[in-house]
């Protein structure tokens, strides 16, 4: 791990042209950061609100699920959940205002947020004509999409 060549940091940053390039670089980064931060914040607030609404709806519609003793045992000790876990059952559940489906929809928004973040970064880097980070972020996005598709085939 030990590097052979060692430089003093001031030697690099002291150079005027390089300092100017660094400043421009930082400006670009700050702009990208506010957009990405906003994407994450919106994703988080949206998913949290939908999940909370889902919990309230499921409570109002089926208070028995929450208040009966031992209801938890039946619901949670199974190996896989009985609740909607394909996109079509989630959407049909949503149209019937099913609490569980609303919760799952909120969770899907949460799962989608990091993936959307990668996609948005790719677009930002494309606008900034960043020749290294456009391929980097596009690659990561494609790996994510691939893993989703592979997961579906396997699951």
């Amino acid at each position: 791990m030990a590097g052979k060549e060692v430089v003093d940091s001031s030697q690099v940053l002291g150079d005027d042209a390089r300092a100017e390039a660094l400043r421009k670089q930082l400006e670009k980064i700050h702009r990208a950061e506010s957009v990405i931060s906003a994407v994450l914040r919106i994703g988080v607030v949206l998913s949290l609100s939908v999940v909370v609404v889902g919990v309230i709806v499921s409570f109002v519609r089926k208070p028995g699920t929450y208040l009966h003793d031992n209801a938890i045992n039946k619901a949670l000790l199974t190996k896989s959940s009985n609740y909607p876990h394909s996109l079509s059952t989630v959407f049909s559940g949503l149209s019937h205002l099913q609490g569980e489906a609303i919760i799952v929809f909120g969770l899907i928004i949460l799962l989608a947020t990091p993936i959307l973040r990668v996609l948005v970064s790719a677009v930002i880097f494309a606008f900034q004509r960043d020749r290294y980070f456009v391929p980097i972020t596009v690659f990561v996005f494609l790996v994510l999409v691939t893993s989703f598709l592979l997961g579906k085939a396997g699951g």
Binding site: A75, S81, Y83, H85, E100, I103, I108, G151, K152
Partner: peptide, 11 residues
């Protein structure tokens, strides 16, 4: 995605 499809994400 895998966990979701397998029904391992319980609401």
């Amino acid at each position: 995605g895998v966990y979701f499809a397998r029904g391992e994400i319980d609401p």
